[in-house]
């Protein structure tokens, strides 16, 4: 187990490093560099000044050298300053990450609470009316354009009914928890509906498969009731594969979160990434993208470990 764990951690670190280089290189390909931005803001700067500034900031160096310099800072926790917020990148990201984790975590839990019973009921009566309805709703869940679902919810609950705010994180200056919750409802609802569809399909398929297993037949034959067989034997078996699916979906949950945050002006990581890329804030974009990657890679790592821990049949070897 420890050997496997070590290898997976090494793999995760390697992947993160690879992504940091790729993203660094890609961001260098975005239009304009920081000095070009200064030039456009201040007509008094001469070409010589610009060249001097570029040399001073190391922007005339080759890509590898600049990346090495950035990496040196990054491993000690120094990601530089944000251009948009004029504060250290780490200070900007902290609260945003908390907001996103609240949004993603709540939506994930709600989506599972919705998907698990629905998927199980659908699998118990395949091809029945319930199954067809659940299936259709699940298809709707993963086929609906995320931003459009958000817009429709705004039209219904904010424009027509006026029950909920159309966007934001909290009223200005308010720290009241109830106020914050009101602002969370629509973003969470959107993300939950988006995520639930995929989970329903997986729960249903996993349950159908579990119900075909020989040990289920054995349990039935030895006289256990239908309910007991489903709850005690089939469900744990089906839920096991769900662990992996949930982890694999953290990446797409993050993508959904980016859209939802942008629509509802919710101050999370997704909106931060979008704003920093649109605002040419390279230091911030780079660090935020890497944090997003780290979160999804960690989720997968944790799922792999949990899977081995939950399923005694799996032996990862020495």
């Amino acid at each position: 187990m420890s050997g496997y764990l070590g290898r997976r951690i090494a793999e995760t670190v390697f992947l993160l490093w690879l992504m940091s280089f790729l993203i660094y290189a890609l961001i260098g390909l975005m239009p304009g560099d920081p000095i070009d931005l200064m030039l456009s803001a201040d007509p008094e700067i001469t070409a010589e000044d610009a060249a001097r500034l570029k040399a001073l900031q190391g922007l005339d160096r080759p890509l590898i050298e600049r990346y090495g310099f950035w990496l040196q800072g990054a491993v000690t926790g120094d990601f530089g300053y944000s251009r948009l917020y004029a504060r250290p990148v780490v200070d900007v990201i902290g609260p945003r990450l908390v907001n996103t984790l609240i949004l993603m975590g709540t939506s994930l839990v709600l989506a599972l609470l919705l998907a698990i019973p629905a998927g199980i009921v659908a699998a118990l009566y395949p091809r029945g009316l319930t199954d067809s309805t659940v299936n259709l709703l699940a298809f709707a869940g993963f086929s609906v354009p995320s931003f459009w679902l958000g817009l429709i919810l705004i039209i219904v609950f904010a424009v027509q009914l006026g029950w909920l705010p159309a966007g934001g994180t909290a009223p200005v200056g308010s720290t009241d928890l109830l106020d914050r919750l009101r602002y969370l409802i629509l973003p969470v609802l959107t993300l939950t509906l988006l995520a639930a569809g995929t989970f329903v399909r997986f729960v249903r398929a996993a349950m159908l498969e579990a119900l075909r297993e020989d040990f289920i037949r054995t349990a039935r034959v030895k006289g256990l009731s239908r309910t007991a067989v489903v709850v005690r034997h089939a469900m744990p078996h089906a839920m096991l594969s769900l662990v992996t699916i949930v982890a694999l979906n953290v990446g797409s949950l993050f993508s959904g979160s980016l859209v939802v945050e942008t629509i509802f002006a919710y101050l999370g990581m997704g909106k931060l990434i979008y704003d920093s890329i649109m605002g040419n804030d390279y230091n911030l974009a780079l660090a935020a993208l890497l944090i997003a990657t780290l979160v999804t890679l960690l989720a997968n790592l944790v799922a792999d470990i949990a899977y081995g821990w939950l399923d005694p049949r799996i032996d990862y070897g020495g």
Binding site: M19, I23, L26, I27, L29, M30, P31, L248, G251, S252, F254, S255, G256, L258, V259, G270, I273, Y274, I277, M278, A285, L289, A292, T293, V295, T296, L297, N300
Partner: peptide
Amino acid sequence: IALPLLPLLIVLAAID
């Protein structure tokens, strides 16, 4: 499959 695709697509779409 594990990566958060949309943020990366945004970076790729934004490059010159």
